[in-house]
Amino acid sequence: MSGATEIQNLKDRDPFADEDEESGQNSQSQEKIHIRIQQRNGRKTLTTVQGIPTKFDHKKILKVIKKEFACNGTIISSAESKGMGEVIQLQGDHRLKIKEFLADADAGLGLDEKTIKIHGF
């Protein structure tokens, strides 16, 4: 029960610290990455990933994802997405895989899982 352990515990996550670190990491005002799903005709679906930090090259991410998930996809430019920033759009339901990819430190982007939010059913 030494004091050192308690301090260590505090250091780990300071609840009173500014949120700047997290939001600075991400693009503009969006703090979270939203993964959504949309239904198309039949049992086809689209997965959209919104709010990936601009420090990453979206094109390269898409290239890797397309290869890994064996699906096609596209980048919706911020002009097209009406102020939502660049959005990666994939064909099919890849929500969980995308999340794993974004959170994976080695093979993916190594983002904090808490910043990723999965929407949809």
Partner: peptide, 8 residues
């Protein structure tokens, strides 16, 4: 609502 792709 966030981004919603154009379907259809």
């Amino acid at each position: 609502t966030g981004f919603s792709a154009q379907v259809g």
